[in-house]
Simulated assay, not measured.
Amino acid sequence: MRKPSIQLTLQTTSLVTGFMIWVLISSLMPSIKQDIALTESQISMITAIPVILGSLLRIPIGFYTDRFGARNLFIISFIALLIPVFYISVANSFIDLVVGGLFLGIGGAVFSVGVTSLPKYYPKEKQGLINGVYGVGNAGTAITTFGAPIIAKSIGWQKTVQLYLILLLIFIVLNFIIGDRKETKGKQSMVEQLKGVYKNTTLWFLSLFYFITFGAFVAFTMFLPNFLVNNFELDSVDAGIRTAIFIVIATLMRPVGGFLADKFNSFIILMFTFTAVTLSAVILAFSPNIELFTVGCLAVGIFVGIGNGTVFKLVPLYFSNQAGVVNGIVSAMGGLGGFFPPLVLTLVHNITGQYSIAFMALSEVALACLVIVVWMFSQERINKQKSDFFNRNNKVGQSY
């Protein structure tokens, strides 16, 4: 196996590339809609579409990473992305953007590669931090959200999209040369792994937590550029910068969450996370101006970032033997968590003329997660006390 630090760097930068491509359409939407006539409902659909494949593909990609290694999965994924990226650059209709956007989801699906591969290189006491560092690859969304609109103002959005073909080719070559050909690989079939986990309630609780934390990150990333332009009448570049700041904060908080989860009880950190998200969403629901809305957004960014890092500390602790498929399921649920909010926000706005109810829904779901975390924490304490009790009794029995 190659040096862990080399694989961490390569896989993290590969994730940056995948996420840069994943948000191409949403980042360039203010420019795209000037050339292609789109309704608000169509824009919401196009913005949400990349999340579908980016979520569902995470399950097989997580499994096949465990089976064939990160090097092969990154190479295959980036080769597959060349086609939709070029197709979007010549798009001239709503259908073109839907089809191209759907397959851009491959860029978001590669998240499952690193969270499955990297724990093989590090001991358990470091896996929270390592997965958090890998999660910094989310910064790819910030790079595109901030940079793509600026480049598009100079050379047009079509040529801006085509520049990403060069980036893909570079990382295909890098993974081919530097990727680990001797990575330890799993041998269980997907059916065997699924049979071992699908009845485990912990899997579905972790999936729900990631549905909220990463889902909120994805939803805000996809929705904010167009939302800020329409709702607060900001310039597209200004909206892109503000969205990029949100992404950077959430991304930088991810390794912080992983580090804290390595040092302290993960459930306690999740309690703070969901309490803060509950309150922040209430602020968003009652934000009459951009200043208060910014406070709510930044608070959400900080705590969903911490939550993201914490959840993926728990996955290898509970499911070390089914890491590939479980990483895929949990991360898929996180991606799907980003699909529904833009559609719900648009639907609520069309019916009521405002967004408050949708933001309050986020608050209520986060509150439900808080209740579940408290219950899981109490169960963990009870089980630990029982284990300590039996261990003491066994020692007493042995002494006789």
Rank of each mutant, 00 (worst) to 15 (best):
L228P: 02
V229G: 00
A219D: 03
N230T: 07
V237L: 11
R242I: 10
D235E: 13
I212C: 09
Y210Q: 11
E233C: 02
V229K: 03
F246V: 02
L208E: 06
A239R: 00
R242F: 06
F223A: 08
L224C: 01
A219Y: 10
F211T: 05
A219V: 05
A216I: 11
M222P: 00
L224E: 00
I247V: 15
A216T: 13
L234W: 08
N230I: 05
D235F: 11
F211P: 06
I245H: 13
V237A: 12
F246W: 05
I241C: 02
V229D: 02
T213N: 12
I245C: 11
A244T: 14
V248K: 01
I212Y: 03
I245T: 14
I249K: 08
S207P: 04
F214P: 00
F214A: 08
L208F: 13
L234C: 04
V229L: 07
I247L: 14
A216N: 13
S236R: 06
F220A: 11
F209P: 01
A250E: 09
F217L: 07
A216S: 15
N231D: 15
G215A: 08
V248I: 15
L208N: 04
G240F: 12
F217M: 09
S236Q: 07
A239I: 04
D238L: 11
R242W: 04
F209Q: 07
I247W: 10
T213P: 04
F232Q: 09
N226K: 12
N226G: 02
S207Y: 05
V229E: 12
V229I: 10
A250R: 09
V218R: 01
E233D: 13
A219I: 08
I245M: 14
S236A: 12
V229Q: 03
A239W: 01
F232R: 04
I247H: 07
A250N: 08
V248S: 02
I212H: 03
A219N: 03
T221S: 15
I241D: 00
T221V: 14
G215R: 02
D238E: 13
F223K: 12
E233L: 13
N231Y: 14
D238P: 01
P225H: 10
A219M: 06
M222T: 13
Y210H: 12
E233T: 11
P225D: 12
I245P: 13
S236V: 05
F211S: 05
F223P: 00
N231C: 03
G215T: 08
R242A: 03
G240D: 07
V248A: 15
A250K: 09
F246D: 01
F246Y: 15
N231S: 15
L224K: 02
I241N: 00
T213F: 04
L228A: 13
G215H: 04
A244P: 15
P225Q: 10
I247Y: 09
N226Y: 04
S207G: 14
Y210A: 07
A250Q: 10
N231R: 15
L224M: 15
A244L: 13
I212M: 11
F209W: 07
I249G: 10
F209E: 05
D238V: 13
F227M: 10
F220T: 01
A219L: 04
F220D: 00
I212D: 07
T243D: 02
N226R: 09
T213M: 06
L228D: 03
F232E: 09
S236N: 06
I241W: 05
F209H: 06
F209N: 07
L228Y: 13
V237G: 02
I247E: 04
